[in-house]
């Protein structure tokens, strides 16, 4: 399993748009399921945000102290079901690496037992079948698998169970379990007065101390319109009797980001529900 690598892309052309840069990157990677991905950067105020494809790169607020400009190529949108939607092996691997990293950094909460099982699939993806002839105790000591390293024996027990599963299969098995974690695939906005989560299925509102269980959920099918006016963000339900749901973001640009993520996620949501799927059209 190759480790993730940092790539720096430089351009001479100040007119280059976000889309030209993005297309260049996906061509190099050989990726076709491009609709899940984006280029992430840190803006001049230190906030992580996504490169807009329809604007020039130089018009966007990329931190200028870094030369060359730095971007992370990452999944921006998540499928509703990995086994239905992630077809290309490169797409599967990029999701696997990104989700694994988020779990190891505790950005996605994962109960210990699940973490052990996931780690065993990561090990199967990396080493193949468990073989006690060549795998001496300590064989996982140098791998980042769990927040703490003392779980080798338990991971090994699961690892032995995965005999015969190929690397790609192991990564997909990993993702099939990870996608059921509450925080998987949710874009959280915590600077808002209530914590907001945007994901493939809609908008959720959380209390700041519990990002696992939404206080209220608004699936796309129940939302008529989302909009903002300066720092105020308003969600109008389909049901006209239900009250509008509004909140204030600390900055206008947070509202712009929330709206862009709503549009992108809902676009994919609609396409999935058309008989002619994205994959079929491609």
């Amino acid at each position: 399993m190759p480790e993730p690598i940092n790539v720096t892309v430089t351009t001479m052309d100040p007119k280059t748009t976000g889309k030209q840069l993005f297309d260049h990157v996906v061509n190099i990677v050989g990726l076709r399921e491009v609709w899940f991905f984006g280029l992430q950067y840190v803006d001049s105020r230190g906030y992580s945000t996504w490169l807009q494809l329809n604007k020039k790169v130089t018009q966007q607020d990329v931190k200028k102290e870094k030369d060359p400009l730095q971007f992370k190529f990452r999944a921006k949108f998540f499928p509703e079901d990995v086994s239905e939607e992630l077809i290309q092996e490169i797409t599967q691997r990029l999701f696997f690496l990104q989700v694994k990293e988020a779990i190891l950094k505790d950005e996605i909460y994962c109960p210990t037992e699940t973490a052990v099982l996931l780690a065993s699939y990561a090990v199967q993806a990396k080493y193949g079948d468990y073989n006690k002839e060549i795998r001496n105790p300590g064989y996982l000591a140098n791998d980042r698998l769990l927040p703490q390293q003392q779980w080798e024996e338990r991971i090994q027990n699961w690892h032995e169970e995965h005999r015969g599963i190929q690397r790609e299969g192991s990564m997909m098995d990993y993702l099939k379990i990870a996608q059921d974690l509450e925080m998987y695939g949710v874009n959280y906005f915590e600077e808002t007065e209530l914590c907001l989560g945007v994901d493939a299925l809609g908008l959720n509102i959380y209390e700041h101390d519990d990002k696992l269980t939404p206080k209220i959920g608004f699936p796309w099918s129940e939302i008529r319109n989302v909009s903002f006016n300066d720092k105020k963000f308003v969600l109008k339900p389909i049901n006209k009797k239900a009250p509008d749901f509004g909140f204030y973001a600390p900055h206008l640009r947070v509202n712009k980001q929330i709206l862009a993520l709503c549009m992108g996620n809902h676009e994919l949501y609609m396409r999935r529900r058309k008989p002619d799927t994205i994959e079929a059209r491609e």
Partner: peptide, 20 residues
């Protein structure tokens, strides 16, 4: 400037704009 400070997305209306 005013336009940049506002944004809207019709979730339900978006279905009608989908290419058939």
């Amino acid at each position: 400037l005013r336009q940049q400070r506002m944004g809207t997305y019709g979730v339900r209306a978006a279905w009608r704009r989908l290419p058939q």
